[in-house]
């Protein structure tokens, strides 16, 4: 159980750190200067690393703990849809996030010397960074629903 909590914690914390890194990118690009573009570049690189870390630890938890310990409990509880719909959706739309993160990092690398003049490129990256932030927080909300499904199943047997 201790391993399970640690893996969920790492998955969630790295995901949230990734979202904050891309929020940082978004803010730096709203009113760019040479120094803010440098910071956006660093933030995007950190964001990619955090998201990749979240992917790794979330996947490790999903394969080693969730499938054997959590999934059967949720499916036999009062909220089986928490797994059947929410987990199934979450685990697959999550795969969009690392590629969006790499896309943003790639665009910043490509356009970092043009962002001051090229508002379209800048707003494109702002839009994608905002999308990453929204997706990560949506996925975190789905994580809450899944843990509620697990809690509801345990409450049904214990209380």
């Amino acid at each position: 159980m201790g391993v399970m909590h640690a893996l969920i914690g790492l998955h969630a914390a790295l995901g949230e750190a990734g979202a904050l890194a891309f929020l940082w990118v978004l803010i730096e690009l709203l009113n760019p200067s040479a120094s803010s573009l440098r910071r956006a570049h660093i933030a995007a690189t950190l964001g990619v690393l955090f998201i990749l870390g979240s992917w790794f630890f979330g996947g490790f938890y999903y394969v080693t703990e969730y499938g054997t310990l959590v999934k059967p409990v949720i499916k036999s509880g009062p909220l089986p849809w928490a797994h059947e719909i929410i987990t199934e959706t979450k685990e697959h739309i999550f795969l969009f996030v690392p590629l969006l993160a790499v896309l943003v990092r790639g665009l910043i690398g490509r356009y970092k010397n043009e962002f001051m003049q090229n508002r379209g490129a800048r707003m494109g990256v702002v839009l994608l960074s905002g999308l990453i932030v929204l997706m990560v927080f949506t996925i975190a909300g789905m994580g809450f629903i899944i843990s509620s499904g697990f809690r509801a199943a345990l409450e049904a047997t214990v209380l």
Partner: peptide
């Protein structure tokens, strides 16, 4: 060089793809 248009298309693809999965 149409980065904003590309970003909008990514957004559209994410929304449609995510909706298809959900």
């Amino acid at each position: 060089g149409k980065v904003f248009g590309g970003a909008l298309m990514v957004l559209l693809n994410v929304v449609l793809g995510g909706s298809a999965i959900f």
